[in-house]
Write a protein that binds this DNA or RNA. Structure first.
Lengths: 210, 210
DNA sequence: ATGATATTGTGAAAGGCATCACGACTTTAG
DNA sequence: CTAAAGTCGTGATGCCTTTCACAATATCAT
């Protein structure tokens, strides 16, 4: 755990930077300034320079950043070489979408299996990802330590308990349920309906530039 | 714009509080303390009390909060009575999932129309939401001022420009593209692949409780 | 009634992050 | 070679948010 001092806010932006640098590289661009980056990813240029500076002096004054060098640096930092296997629990509409989506574009994560309670779905596969019955969770999970949770809310805590017992490390929770986990397990919540409500609330109460 | 002083962080938590209070009310619970709430929604109790306090003294010392009163208060504050209509652009896998999902559970938002470029899809409806051809966007939008963007990334900026010209107020952008909009339009980004990458990054580099 | 217990609301402190602003350095043009 | 232009890295600053901690007040049990 070498780089513990990197602010979480910075860490969340790294994949964004990585993706854009990748695209620049594909375009054959050799150099890029914090200002160009800023326009592309919509992050203040000072923030970008500060973010990069946590990793040391990656740029050159008066020149900017060398795309290839920066990209290589982030590849290592973000462990882009290493593939993290992920299980998807709950093959409903949202789960199905994720299976098709198949996170693996310039990505170091891959959904390698899915689970559902519906016997109609089990045994098949979607987008090359096999779907198992939820009863077989423990027996199928293998080394997978990350799960995407797209089950109905009232199942969320049950499944979470089983995942926790199994030894999961992280859960990306798309259910509205705020699940309880033993300490040591990291849960990120993405609550789509709250995101939409929040957007609407901001529209009404926080006029932009004010 | 009465309550401009409410911190944005607080505003984002309001729908969460509202949803849980609603469920408490359905269970017939009459009172609730900031500690109970805290366990349920995974937000520090002091933060909850501070959040509520922006709206005045809603609780009673030694007692807690009256569920029904609090709920009524939030209903007004969050404009739960008023329905905000939303258009969904891009009926792919993710878009389809949202249409089925149909945000309207205890919710003040509703997807009332969808658009897609595929003639096979237009003319049909999903979950009661009509799907129009993207060419008819301007003619169909009516008073809708909020859009969910689930189109392919390379279409994102184009569609955004049309939405902006039409007079959109807010966009919930699920594409990886960081779209550019004229000032005055609010964009919230939800980048699923970044969320997954960020979770994995945190797992590796930020041991919990550390 | 009374003491024990529960819980809020909030001042103060601490933490985390974004932004400003500028010195230092590099490149570029002439 | 020199001057002008470009760009980074970062100290300093200020904002926003969370958290602590406790006085004030209410309830509850007997």
């Amino acid at each position: 755990m070498d780089q513990n001092k990197i602010p979480q806010a910075t860490a969340k932006r790294l994949p964004l930077y990585y993706r854009f640098l990748n695209s620049l590289n594909h375009q054959g661009k050799k150099r890029v300034s914090s200002n160009e980056l800023s326009e592309a990813v919509k992050v203040d240029s000072a923030t970008i320079r500060r973010d990069f500076s946590y990793f040391g002096a990656l740029g050159k004054k008066g020149y900017g950043y060398n795309v290839e060098y920066l990209l290589g640096f982030f590849r290592k930092t973000l462990d882009q070489d290493e593939l993290t296997e992920v299980a998807l629990i709950g093959v409903g509409n949202l789960g199905t979408a994720f299976l098709h989506y198949n996170f693996l574009k310039n990505n170091n994560t891959k959904i390698v299996m899915a689970f559902d309670a519906d016997p109609e779905k089990t045994g098949t596969d979607i987008g090359g990802v096999p779907i198992y019955h939820i009863d077989d969770l423990e027996e199928r999970m293998g080394n997978v330590r990350v799960a995407i949770l797209t089950v109905p809310s009232d199942e969320a805590q049950n499944i979470t308990n089983r995942l926790a017992d199994y030894g999961i490390a992280g859960i990306l929770n798309f259910t509205p349920a705020r699940i309880t986990v033993p300490s040591g397990i990291r849960v990120h919540h993405i609550d789509l309906s709250i995101e939409l409500q929040a957007l609407v609330y901001f529209l009404k109460h926080y006029p932009l530039d004010g």
